[in-house]
Design a protein around this nucleic acid. Structure first.
Lengths: 221, 221
DNA sequence: TTCTTAGGCATTGCATACATGTTGCCTTCC
DNA sequence: GGAAGGCAACATGTATGCAATGCCTAAGAA
C-alpha cells in the first residue's frame, strides 16, 4: 500500500518464510517497529496484511503470532491446489503460446539440474517459479490470486519437512511431463498430471495416509 | 480484530453488497469515519481488510474504491468455485452425518419454496446459506476460507444481474439433487452435480459464451 | 498447599497531530 | 488562445499519546 508498510510486509514475509520467526512465535508491534526503524502504525498495517495472506494470526487485544500449520491444513491446501492448479494447466494447454511453453520448459530444465546437483535452495525457488509461471499462463487473475495465497501458506513446509530424493525426482518428471502435455495441446493430460503432481507432493510431505482408501480430507473435528 | 474496526468492516461490507456504494465509487477515509462515528484509524483498517476480501481496491496515496467486476472475473470465479465446491461436495458425501444432510435438505426445501413464491431476497439468502453449509460439511477450514472469499466477490452480481426463472428452477433442482447424492453417499455424483450447478449458474449470469467450444477461461490479455 | 482475587505491568486499540504525495486550477509564457 | 508549470487545497501515510484490555504475580483465605 505505502512505501514504509510495503517494506515492512516484504521484510516480515521474508523472515517468516525463512523460518527466522518460528511458527507460534509472538510478533510484538513495538519490537518489530524498533527492528524495522518505523513507528507502530505501518507495522500494524503490515501485520494485518500478512494475516490476510494467512501467514500471521491476529487475536483482538492479544496480538499477532506466526501461524502454526497443522498437518491437516497442509493436506487440505495441497488437495485444493491439485484441483485449482489442475484447472490452470488445462487452460494453459489451450491458451498458452509456444514461447510461453518454452519458457516454462526452461524453468523445468533448470529445476531438474539443480535437483540433480542437490542445490536445495534453488530447487525450492525454481519449483515455486514453475508453478507461478504456469498459473499465470491460465490468464486468470482470480485463479492466480487464489493459488498464491494457498502457496504462501504451504511454503512454510520448508521449515517442517523436506522432500526426499525419490519425491524430488518424481516432481522433476512431473514438471517435464506437464510441459509435454502443453506442447501436445492436450488439456486433459495436462490437468491430470498436475493433479497427480500435487497429490504426490502431498503424500511425500505428509507421510503415509492415515486412512488410505476413502478419506480425501480429514474427518470433521 | 477489534470492536470498532469490526463494526466498520461489517457495516461497509453490508453497504457494498447491498449496492449502497456503487462499483467504482470512491471511499474516502474521512467521509466514512464521520458516517460511522469513528476516527480514521479503524476505518483504514477496515478498508484494508475489505481489500483482502476482494471487495475494495486500494491504490497507494490515491485511496480506496469499490471494486468493479469485469465479466471475465465472474467467469473465472464461477469456474474455480465449480472445482473447489465440487471437492467440498465429494468430501461431504463421505464425511457428513445424516443429521448434517437433513439440515442441508431443509435449506434446499426452503430455497425451493421461496423460489416458487418469487421472494428473491430470501432466494439469494438461502442460496448463500446452502453453499456455505455444504462447504462447512467438508470439514476443511482452508477450503471454507478459499471459497468464502470467492463468494464474497461474486455476490456482487446481485447488483448486476438476476437469475431468470428457468435458471432458478434449475438451481433449485441441483440443490435437491446434491442432497440426494449425499444421502446415497456417492462422492462422484455429488461432485459432478455441484460442478454442473456452478457452471450452469455461470452460464445464466454471463449470458451466451463467446466461444462455446474450446475456451473455458478467457484468453490472456 | 492450593485456589482465588486484586493490583500492577505490558501490549494492543483508538484518536489526534504532523508529513508527504496527488490533484486540479490558475497564472504565465509561447 | 492553448499549453505548460507551479501553487494551493485536499486526501492519504506516518508518528505519537492516551485509554482499555489482558496477563502475570503476589498475597490471603480455605
Amino acid at each position: 500500500m505505502t512505501a514504509a508498510s510495503d517494506r515492512a510486509v516484504d521484510a516480515l514475509r521474508e523472515r517468516i518464510l525463512r523460518g527466522e520467526y518460528a511458527p507460534g512465535e509472538r510478533l510484538g508491534e513495538v519490537d518489530l517497529a524498533e527492528r524495522l526503524g518505523l513507528s507502530r502504525t505501518p507495522v500494524r498495517e503490515a501485520l494485518r496484511r500478512l494475516s490476510a495472506e494467512g501467514l500471521v494470526e491476529i487475536i483482538t487485544n492479544k496480538g499477532a503470532r506466526v501461524v502454526e500449520y497443522p498437518r491437516q491444513d497442509l493436506d487440505q491446501i495441497f488437495q485444493i491446489r491439485a484441483h485449482v492448479e489442475g484447472l490452470a494447466a488445462r487452460t494453459a494447454a489451450q491458451s498458452a503460446s509456444d514461447a510461453d511453453i518454452d519458457g516454462l520448459n526452461d524453468i523445468a530444465i533448470a529445476h531438474k539440474e539443480h535437483a540433480e546437483a542437490g542445490r536445495l535452495d534453488d530447487v525450492y525457488r525454481l519449483n515455486a517459479q514453475y508453478h507461478s509461471t504456469l498459473n499465470d499462463l491460465a490468464g486468470s487473475p482470480v485463479l492466480t490470486g487464489t493459488v498464491s495465497s494457498l502457496i504462501h501458506a504451504s511454503v512454510l513446509i520448508r521449515t517442517l519437512h523436506a522432500f526426499d530424493e525419490a519425491a524430488m525426482r518424481r516432481s522433476v518428471n512431473h514438471h517435464l511431463e506437464i510441459v509435454a502435455a502443453l506442447r501436445a495441446r492436450d488439456p486433459d493430460w495436462a490437468e491430470a498430471v498436475m493433479h497427480a503432481h500435487l497429490l504426490s507432493a502431498r503424500a511425500s510431505l505428509l507421510g503415509p495416509r492415515p486412512v488410505p482408501a476413502a478419506t480425501p480430507l480429514e474427518e470433521k473435528p
